[in-house]
């Protein structure tokens, strides 16, 4: 193999004499390095493709002139490049087919998923609500609902802390300013024209302003009821909504809650 290398270098320098006129020896070293890497790859290719290379050395021993060798090398490279270009349409078709196959595989993988255990309840809820819906769609909606539930739970912690701090602020705002003036009697006015929030002396009504009311019959018919009003509403203090996770402070009664 070493002899072949020496022979190759002699022929190489004969065919490409400009190599000797390289201004920077580093460039020549780089070229030799590239040729060495190419040689390694060709050896690997011989192992992979089992290409017969028995005729290589015999060709190197031929007694043709350098000019003829150059002509044959140029023609060989030209034919090889033309062969590759001829293969191009077939290769492009194959690549397009491989890409479409890959896309189909990706789509199938996206559809093939499993419902996690806790999400089964949500899947059943969706199925009860929409019995005729596509089963796979129902599974996805159930899983999505469950994941939204866990997301809300995760952000609930910081929201609760915000609620406690907000409560402190509100209590400070709503505190009645101290005064040395003591009224003789308590007077319940209408609140009109006053900057202070007033409370009505009448109990909050339970009548609904909506055109329908939720009752137990709705539950039996499959309808959803409005969740019970939190106790904080009646205490008139801000609280963290279990559904949306926000701190609510303007809800004074069940009508507002609805």
């Amino acid at each position: 193999m070493t002899e072949i290398k020496h022979l190759y270098l002699l022929i190489f320098l004969d065919l490409f004499p400009a190599c000797e006129s390289f201004e920077h020896p580093a460039r020549l070293d780089k070229l030799h390095h590239q040729l060495h890497e190419l040689e390694t790859l060709l050896e690997k290719a011989n192992l992979v493709c089992e290409i017969d290379q028995g005729s290589d050395e015999s060709d190197l021993e031929s007694d043709e002139s350098v000019s003829d060798q150059m002509s044959k090398a140029v023609t060989s490279l030209e034919i090889s490049a033309a062969c590759l270009m001829d293969l191009l349409p077939s290769m492009e078709n194959t690549l397009n087919w491989a890409d479409s196959k890959l896309r189909n595989t990706q789509n199938n993988q996206a559809i093939a998923f499993e419902v996690s255990g806790p999400a089964q309840l949500y899947v059943l809820n969706v199925l009860d609500r929409f019995p005729k819906a596509n089963a796979r769609l129902v599974e996805r909606l159930g899983e999505a609902n469950w994941q939204r539930h866990t997301t809300l739970r995760n952000i609930e912690g910081p929201a609760t802390q915000d609620a406690s701090s907000a409560t402190g602020v509100v209590s400070e705002v709503q505190a009645v300013p101290k005064s040395i003036f003591v009224p003789v009697s308590l007077f319940h006015d209408s609140g009109l024209g006053s900057s202070l929030p007033t409370q009505s002396s009448y109990a909050a009504t339970v009548a609904s302003h909506s055109s329908f009311m939720s009752d137990l019959a709705d539950n039996e018919n499959g309808g959803l009821r409005v969740p019970p009003t939190p106790k904080e509403v009646f205490k008139n203090v801000p609280f963290t909504c279990q559904i949306c996770g926000h701190v609510l402070s303007r809800i004074k009664n069940r009508i507002d809650w609805k």
């Binding site: 040729l35 190419l38 040689e39 290409i51 060709d59 060989s76």
Partner: peptide, 20 residues
């Protein structure tokens, strides 16, 4: 694969060994 690799190998050999 076989055709492309053989063609590339032929080009590489031409460049390396000046195979004629």
């Amino acid at each position: 694969k076989e055709t492309v690799l053989e063609t590339l190998v032929a080009m590489g050999k031409t460049l390396i060994f000046c195979k004629l």
